[in-house]
């Protein structure tokens, strides 16, 4: 079974990512649907175990407060230097008060884990071939932070 980092641990994971160009029947599994697919089909879909994934060029505001019906939302990093996912995550967590699992998928790299965590991601499906055990250490590259973010409502100067 594929492995991911979740809450700081390397764990098995069974979510299946459905591509944007998908057609036909959905597999019998926990599926992560493309956001647009879900928006287009939500009235006819009857899925107990579905999450969605948002691409970096998609507008998180279109899902908005509806986010909270999902147990899991993933945000795609088509390349690791495409930093839009950081804003998408913060908006989901802070503006739309999403409380489910928030996962980074695609091309995010180990050296971004600390920032990703700060923006509200709690699980990470990194590229294949990365040693997840040692990568997980990078979640804690820093022990002090200046700014507010999804993980820290108060800036350092208010924390005393």
């Amino acid at each position: 079974m594929p492995k991911i980092i979740k809450d700081g641990q390397v764990v098995d994971d069974s979510w299946v990512i459905i591509n944007k160009d998908f057609s036909g029947d959905l597999p019998m599994a926990k599926v992560l649907l493309p956001m647009q697919y879900w928006l287009d089909n939500k009235d006819s879909l009857n899925l107990m175990c579905a999450g969605i994934w948002i691409d970096s060029d998609e507008d998180v505001d279109t899902i908005g407060l509806e986010a909270n019906q999902f147990p899991l939302i993933a945000v795609n990093f088509p390349t690791f230097v495409d930093g839009r996912g950081f804003s998408i995550a913060r908006l989901l967590k802070e503006r739309y008060e999403f409380t489910g699992q928030l996962r980074a998928i695609g091309s995010a790299i180990r050296d971004q884990l600390f920032y990703l965590k700060r923006c509200g991601f709690d699980s990470f499906d990194l590229k294949e071939g990365i040693d997840l055990e040692s990568a997980a250490a990078s979640l804690n590259d820093f022990s002090v932070t200046y700014q507010t973010s999804a993980d820290q409502p108060e800036p350092l100067f208010r924390r005393g």
Binding site: F80, V81, D82, G83, F86, S87, R90, Q112, F114, Y115, L116, R118, C119, F142, T145, Y146, Q147, S149, P155, L156
Partner: peptide, 14 residues
Amino acid sequence: RQWSTFHPEFAFLP
């Protein structure tokens, strides 16, 4: 400087 240092949201800008 302090605000921008390791700002988690803006480390990979366009």
